[in-house]
Structure formats: C-alpha cells, structure tokens
C-alpha cells in the first residue's frame, strides 16, 4: 500500500503550514516525519487521513485519490491523531467495539478483532476498565488498538510516544516495530532517537518543506560534515594561546577553541574534517609538548545535530 503526495500545500490564512511538498512512500516502509513543532507534520497527516483538504496538490493512497474517494481511503488507513483523543467515559472493550463498528468490520468478526487487539497491544488486564482510569501508557495502547482494529494496510501515527515515560516509550516503540512489519507505517515525532530506533526512512520537515529525505544512515553519512572532539589537558605553566595554536596546526583539525577552564584542567573543543581520525595526531602533539592529557573524546555528528542544522532559523 503506497502513499503518493504531489505538490501538496495547505495554508492557514496567509501562513503556509505545508508548502508544495512531494514524496512517495512505498509498501511496507516505516517512515518517520521529523521536524520541530509547527513544521507541518500533523497537517500533512491530517490531509492524508482526509481530515483536512489540501489547498493545492493531490494525495493518493494506493492510487486512490483522497479527495474524490475519501471513504475508500479512510477504510485503508488506521489513524492515531496527535494527543491520542479517547472517550474517557467508555470502557476499553466497548470503545474497541465502537471503533470496529465505525470501521465496518463485519459483525461476526468483531469479537475476534477485539480479542486480537487486546492480545497484541497487551490490554488484557485493563480491558474492563474505563479509559479515563488508565495510565498514559495504556491509553496509548488503546489508541493504537483502535487504529488497527480493522487491520488497515496503512498506519498513521501522530507523535505516538509523546508524553510517555522512558519505559513506556520503549514498550510503545517495540509495539510499533512489531506492527510495522506487515504495514506501511508513517509516524511523526520531534525526537531524534525515535526515528533512529524505529524508522527505515526519515523525512525531515521544516516550515512546511521537506529539507531532507533518506534512511537514518544515509542522512548521517550525507550530512556528516565533521567530527566533534573534546580534549582535556592538565593545567600547567604552558601558555594557553600557545597550546591552542599548536593544536590548531594539527592536520585535519578545522577549528579549535577553549571550552572552559578550571583549577586543574583546560577543556578544548575541536572540530575535525570529514572522514578523518585525528586522535592519534592529537595525542602525539600533546606528548611532544610535554603536557598531560586527562581526556580525549571524538564523536561523529549525530542525527540530532543534522536535525538542528537543518531546522534552525
């Protein structure tokens, strides 16, 4: 079940929430929409799920147009909206039954569908409780169960892990991974680790436009401009400016600056050129200057840094 978006735009008044974006999602992919709040992730999802109508452009879910044939599209999609809205006064089983009926699951199959969702989402112990009494983690599972009750081919999850504690986040992520195996899955998030942990492919969205598209690994290698190196030296009588100059002169070191300084040590922040490894050279240089090295740490630019580079103003 593929999703195809062509030149999609949506305006709120003068402001473009989504500005002429196009992309394609293939069957079976797990795609993450990554972007800061207000980037247009939710608006795009709302248009795919037919809640909103685009001002411009078209969306096809398995070649079915969302505008001219919205009922057919809706039947194929399972949707968990942002903030996971639920009927707090209903109990879990009643709610799932309601969701199944709304999704036109044949009457005879409803008990089976509910039972499957209760098992898959681990709702057994709370199935007779009112949703209002459940913890956030369980509510999220109910939201997921609701979205999948009719076994849709496409799952669209808007910030499925927001507001959960770290344990719950891991549980929900595992659940999503498990579900994603059989379905085309689109999720949105502003948390980097989430896409790294769950997605095959990332679309980084900023101010209504797609600024990057690719697997987490390719994005990392494509945008991997540099190495971040932290160097800690024991403080002695050597002049700081001299050290800085010496360190800067090492091959492949781009920039060097003093990060902070305390009683016993000086912290330097260095930037190394793409694809290099400068640790050995730094070590030799420091030894040649007869100084004591307390620490050396080298890190490649993370997806988080890429995200920040791409989305800051």
């Amino acid at each position: 079940m593929s999703i195809k978006v062509e030149n999609l735009s949506k305006y709120y008044g003068q402001q473009a929430a989504v500005n002429n974006i196009s992309f394609e999602i293939n069957t079976g992919e797990i795609v993450g929409f990554l972007g800061p709040n207000g980037a247009g992730k939710s608006t795009t999802m709302k248009m795919i799920t037919t809640y909103l109508t685009p001002n411009n452009g078209k969306i096809f879910v398995n070649n079915v147009d969302t505008e001219t044939n919205s009922m057919e599209v809706r039947r194929k999609i399972g949707y968990l909206p942002e903030q996971n809205p639920l009927y707090l006064d209903m109990n879990v089983l009643d709610y799932l039954e309601y969701a199944a009926e709304l999704e036109s699951v044949p009457k005879a199959d409803i008990p089976k569908a509910i039972k499957k969702m209760v098992d898959v989402c681990g709702l057994g112990e709370v199935q007779h409780k009112d949703i209002g009494e459940l913890s956030k983690g369980f509510r999220q599972r109910v939201g997921l169960a609701q979205a999948m009750i009719h076994d849709p081919e496409v799952l669209i999850l808007d910030e499925p892990t927001s507001g959960l504690d770290p344990n719950q986040i891991i549980e929900i992520r595992n659940l999503i991974k498990k579900l994603g195996k059989e379905k085309t899955l689109v999720l949105s998030t502003h948390i980097m680790q989430e896409v790294e942990a769950t997605c095959d492919r990332v679309l980084i969205i900023n101010k209504g436009e797609i600024v990057a598209d690719g697997s987490p690994d390719t994005l990392q290698s494509k945008f991997k401009g540099q190495l971040d190196i932290t160097l800690i030296l024991k403080k002695d009588s050597t002049d700081k400016a001299l050290i800085l100059k010496a360190v800067s002169s090492i091959k492949n070191i781009d920039k060097a600056r003093i990060l902070k300084e305390d009683e016993n040590s000086i912290h330097f922040s260095l930037t190394g050129l793409k694809g290099s490894d400068v640790r050995e050279d730094i070590f030799k240089k420091i030894v040649s200057m007869n100084m004591v090295m307390l620490g050396l740490h080298q890190e490649e630019t993370s997806l988080e840094d890429i995200f920040r580079q791409l989305t800051k103003n």
Binding site: K46, R74, R75, P81, P85, L86, S104
Partner: peptide
C-alpha cells in the same frame, strides 16, 4: 474539545 472529532471524521462514515 477532546479531539475525538478527528477520530470520528476520519472513519469511513459520512
């Protein structure tokens, strides 16, 4: 207010 309208309006019913 609760946002459930979004769920309802994206189900295959008119």
């Amino acid at each position: 207010k609760s946002g459930t309208i979004e769920l309802l309006l994206t189900k295959p019913i008119t």
